[in-house]
Amino acid sequence: MPAETIVEVKEIDMTYEGGVEALAGVSLALPEGRISTFLGPSGCGKTTLLKIIAGLIPPTHGEIWVKGKKVDGPGPERAFVFQDFALLPWANVLRNVAFGLELRGLPAQERHAIARKHIAEVGLKSFEASYPHQLSGGMRQRVGLARALSVDADIILMDEPFSSVDEQTRRKFQEELLDLLRHKHKTVIFVTHSIEEAAYLSDQIILLSPRPGTISNIIRPNIDREGRNPDEIRRDKNYLDAVDEIWEILKHYV
């Protein structure tokens, strides 16, 4: 079933001050309500591309269109989950999760009610009053995710959200993410280093070439996840084929 395009990346070039060419001629269409993944060798510009879509850095050339509007900065329809969590160290979990709503000027009671709901959703119910330094890496990442969910953005951008947690937590987190997002019909764009993770989670995998990043391939695993448990999915032929295919391409880059 074809989904409508929600984010359009049009001929993006990005050259940083100092002359590092991070991206060259990247054009893409990202489907609504799906999970798309950027995968590629270190330094190929994945984070850069994600931040350009978020409106955090202006591209040297090209345009981003979100829901039919040209992007010229961050917007309420996009939320970001940061690789380094980016939690306020002086604020507890509740305030951190509600921070996006606090910036919008929502009264404390309302924003805390919304935040509490999402804190429970990511499984941190009893940690509302804890401070970031009292939490493990995985828990901090959940706080970051809850914060992104609280602002009710349609598009969630995630930069290597699972990179700082152990394998078990990672798998559990992936499951929860899949669950959560399918229910909420969010569009997710995320960056990962893991081929398995990309194939397992994504509807569409965008493979980037080494710097300057260009689109080398787009792979759509087409895995049927309906009513199947994780182990079944990991044995699915389409899943295994996708992993192989990605590896075949990436192997030339390393």
Binding site: K51, A54, G55, L56, G73, P74, G75, P76, R78, A79, F80, F82, D84, A86, L88, W90, F99, G100, E102, L103, R104, R147, V151
Partner: peptide, 29 residues
Amino acid sequence: ADRSLVEMARCFGARRYQLYTKVLILCAL
């Protein structure tokens, strides 16, 4: 001050004064 906190605040729609009052000053406190 943590650059990624500044980016985070911008991303969640912080106005310029909010960037100072809710992030930068507290980072530097």
